[in-house]
């Protein structure tokens, strides 16, 4: 659990970030990334035998944890979600890269206990596909930063259209339209590019 100081800082940075301060993002990202990763593993390693988990739920739980009873400010929350979406992308891509390097027998050294704890388990197929989607997304990023962000929010963060719109400061209608085009663009890139 983060202590009160951290919660306070996160709230302050979120405010800053909402106002467009890019430095605040750099402060927030590592904290959110770490907490998210910790949650992803703690959910998997929890004691109950059966459980469902999905990225949206993890992101939401992380938000509630990091901000405790924090502000119910919808704007702040959607900004937080956006950062979490980026972090989630990073986590999944890292997990896929590790899977690939293990499969190819690249780095054979056994994982330490810490690393195993952090390990997000993905199947071979999922991790390969994820890397391909990520490459395509990187290409899209070069063409339009905004389009890529929309993909991050909708696909990696599991955010709703309204949340995405609020986080990126664009209208919900634009998000809806852009998401349709962006995912089609990615799909076309994956199959024809």
């Amino acid at each position: 659990m983060p202590d009160n100081n951290t919660v306070k800082n996160i709230t302050v940075y979120l405010e800053e970030f909402s106002k467009g301060n890019k430095m605040a993002f750099n402060k927030l990202f590592p904290v959110v990334y770490r907490e998210l990763r910790r949650n992803a593993h703690s959910l998997r390693f929890r004691f109950f035998d059966m459980e469902t988990l999905n990225t949206t739920a993890i992101v939401h739980e992380t938000y509630l944890k990091l901000l405790k009873s924090g502000s119910g400010n919808f704007k702040n929350r959607s900004h937080f979600y956006y950062i979490a979406a980026k972090a989630m992308r990073q986590i999944l891509v890292n997990a896929s890269l590790r899977k690939r390097s293990l499969r190819r027998g690249g780095d054979e050294k056994p994982l330490s206990l810490e690393e195993i704890k952090d390990y997000v388990q993905l199947s071979d197929q999922t991790s390969e596909e994820l890397l391909l989607v990520n490459e395509a997304l990187e290409k899209l990023e070069v063409r339009s930063d905004r389009q890529a962000r929309i993909v991050e929010c909708r696909f990696f963060g599991g955010m709703s259209i309204e949340e995405t719109a609020s986080a990126l400061d664009i209208s919900p209608a634009t998000v809806k339209r852009s998401w349709n085009v962006a995912k089609t663009w990615l799909y076309t890139e994956l199959n024809e590019g």
Binding site: R44, L53, N54, T55, L92, L122, S123, T126, E129, G158
Partner: peptide, 11 residues
């Protein structure tokens, strides 16, 4: 694809 990722994570 999103469902498959989530299914992977869910175990």
């Amino acid at each position: 694809f999103r469902k498959r990722i989530e299914a992977d994570l869910e175990g």
